[in-house]
Design a protein around this nucleic acid. Sequence first.
DNA 1: CCTACCGATCGGTAGG
DNA 2: CCTACCGATCGGTAGG
Lengths: 215, 215
Amino acid sequence: MAKKNGTANRQGSGPSTGQTERQPPARYWELIRAAGKLFEEKGYQGASVRDIADAVGMTSGSFFYHFATKEDVLFAVMEGGMLQGLEVVTKKLEGARSAREQLYALVLGHLEGLHSEYGYAHKVWLREWRQISPEKRAPLEALSQSYRDTWLQVLAKVKNEGLIAADIALFRRMTVGALNWTVHWVRNPTPEQLQALAADFVGAFLNEPNPEVRR
Amino acid sequence: MAKKNGTANRQGSGPSTGQTERQPPARYWELIRAAGKLFEEKGYQGASVRDIADAVGMTSGSFFYHFATKEDVLFAVMEGGMLQGLEVVTKKLEGARSAREQLYALVLGHLEGLHSEYGYAHKVWLREWRQISPEKRAPLEALSQSYRDTWLQVLAKVKNEGLIAADIALFRRMTVGALNWTVHWVRNPTPEQLQALAADFVGAFLNEPNPEVRR
DNA sequence: CCTACCGATCGGTAGG
DNA sequence: CCTACCGATCGGTAGG
């Protein structure tokens, strides 16, 4: 969708040079990954097309063989990150039975998405959303909407069980705001630290009396 | 501190042209204000020195009569916003008796700071913090620390009264994260809407049973 | 995917 | 505070 004219695209649009299998457009994904990391580090405007191209060992002109514009690679970073995040969360949710366990799964999944090795995509989403021109926002907003709906379904159950009293729309905003804010104070957590943090967050969101050990 | 050599500064460093009172360096504050709004709208890197100078009707070269670098005006935007925010919150806190009322005062003050006419300063702080070079961060971090301490003092009381169970450091991060996130979904609220929102937030943070009317 | 390049714009400066 | 300007860098393109 954000693709300009990479190898796979050409093969997809008709019979080609004799290759019967689609080649993985490795360079395309390398660029997305490099761009994501650079956008996270220096910001969208602070990272140049040359920076991105250099990072994968190509010249700046070649970047535009893969993407028509700089904005297109930003779009691809965000889209890829959200698709992967949705997948992880959906899977995590299947293993959860009770409403409370599902809430924990969402919280942990969200934290993992933000702080995993691919977390740059979500951080870039949070910081650089406004760099996406309004005409191109719709597909990203659809993904975002789908994620929002997942949260609201779980929160409706949590509220039905009497665990929260607030409006679930406000509660969701409170929750994702608190979780997204961790990008400012959580650094390179281990999986165990993330699990402990998710448990603490669920306890704080529900204002539950503390379990024995944890202060 | 972020000043280069404006009128007031010159007069402050010695006897001058016969003026005995300090002139308000109006152009200096105009630049800060214009810069803040432009940084909010287009981002620090997206707004040029020329944009800022144009906004107050001067040429780009003249900008550098007031500020040595573009970064200095960003610094001034942030510093000014935080100083004003601290003042507002301190005053609001004096009128609050109970711990719960103090929490409400903090929440409302924070929301007002973000969504007031000067809210651009705080939004810029949130989005452009990393543009401040590490050597220049200390004074801003001191202001931030002071604000943090104010929160922690109130939260300690709130916890003492048994209103929350979580660790107050985590609770504070949850709270400010949720409040800062409102920049993404609250638009031009009236004072009344802000008060209602603050009340809802306090209820959600404490997971209190809902009052009668509000859903 | 590279070379060579374009016009535009950037932050900042010299001299008044 | 303005004029006139600098070197650097930017996103993007033509042609292969």
